[in-house]
Design a binder for these strands. Structure first.
Lengths: 203, 203
DNA sequence: ACCTGAACACCGTTCAAGT
DNA sequence: ACCTGAACACCGTTCAAGT
């Protein structure tokens, strides 16, 4: 039942998952679904938990503590990015932490090794997670499927500001390489947050 | 009509805005709404445009180019943060740029003054916007209204990893100061992206 | 040009009833 | 313990029809 729900989400996206649709797929009445999983929110939590169980552990690489923190952060980015639908599902009920708990623990462990603990570690993790969530949101809806006249090229084509050179206007109309940019941005964040701590070798 | 829709969104949130609800508020049939605005997506775009028109210009402060870029970025954060509902609405159809276009232009202008143009400026803006979007997403759903057993204190309370000190576990169970953290994270990003360029005074 | 009624194809959820 | 039928209160959207 939960497995069926997960496969709907993975193949057809979040919107395709409805209690009625799931029931139909299983050749059963909607009420039966309710009997088994409670309600939609509980179903989603169960789906997220199932997906989390199926995820394999990922290795952290890097020689310096800071590199390792960055590596652990990038692991979260890649993992959520390659399971965008499940991430969107988890995000819809505020259960993203449940989705990536081992990877978040890994970030905290590397932060600790880098000398960042307590509230500072909490803030660093939060910043990393927020940044990742943001890149996912922007990567969510590809420019092609935006409403008429709202694609970047349309919007920026109408902008005519004397402060902006043409090269910038032109660049901003075309999509960025989000994968590269996300990893680079995570580096900036990690550098900014781990900067204060004394670098110390580990292992 | 569009004004009525905007006020529903601002006072009751995105989910409260439906074609039928809007029609009822105006004492009119649902079909009438369709005659006037086309469909839901077009209604949303119109609402976002109306809100954008009503926004006042915000001043960029700071002495150095980098400080001014940061200030322009923080302006976007504060503006979207204080109109979360409209931002969520715009985000649901991928129209966030429409919402904050003048503020984005300001960021690009300050980036230009800092010597960042073309694709580099596009990337910097994208990174800033993604980060802001991410903090909004995390700020979206306050911890209290998450599903049973999914509040940070519940999830992290179950974690028992030898690599993590108690202080960190404890800290991570309590909410961060997102406002301060967002502005600080934006500073890291700006520092990372404007670092390469030669600092030059402006005005 | 502007508005309505009725309909279609969907939602989540509940409740009494069946085996 | 497990499943169903029927119902309630919602959605977005369309289409022929009215004034």
């Amino acid at each position: 039942m939960v497995a069926a729900a997960l496969s709907i989400v993975e193949t057809e996206g979040v919107d395709a998952l409805s209690m009625r649709r799931l029931a139909a797929d299983l050749g059963v009445t909607t009420t039966t679904v309710y009997w088994h999983v409670g309600n939609r929110e509980q179903l989603i939590v169960a789906v997220v938990e199932l997906h989390a169980e199926r995820q394999a552990a990922v290795e952290v690489i890097g020689g310096t503590p800071r590199e390792r923190v960055h590596s652990a952060a990038v692991n979260i980015w890649r993992s959520t990015r390659s399971h965008r639908n499940v991430t969107a599902l988890a995000s819809s009920v505020g259960a993203t932490t449940l989705l990536e708990l081992p990877l978040e623990v890994a970030v905290l462990a590397e932060l600790d090794a880098a000398g960042v603990r307590g509230a500072a570690a909490r803030d660093a993790l939060q910043a990393v997670l927020s940044c990742i969530a943001g890149f996912l949101v922007t990567a969510w809806r590809p420019p092609e499927e935006r409403p008429e006249g709202l694609r970047p090229s349309d919007v920026w084509g109408r902008v005519d500001d004397p402060r902006l050179p043409r090269a910038t206007i032109r660049a901003v109309s075309r999509p960025a390489d989000l994968d590269r940019l996300a990893e680079r941005t995570l580096r900036s964040i990690v550098d900014g947050l781990v900067a204060d701590a004394e670098p110390e070798r580990r292992r």
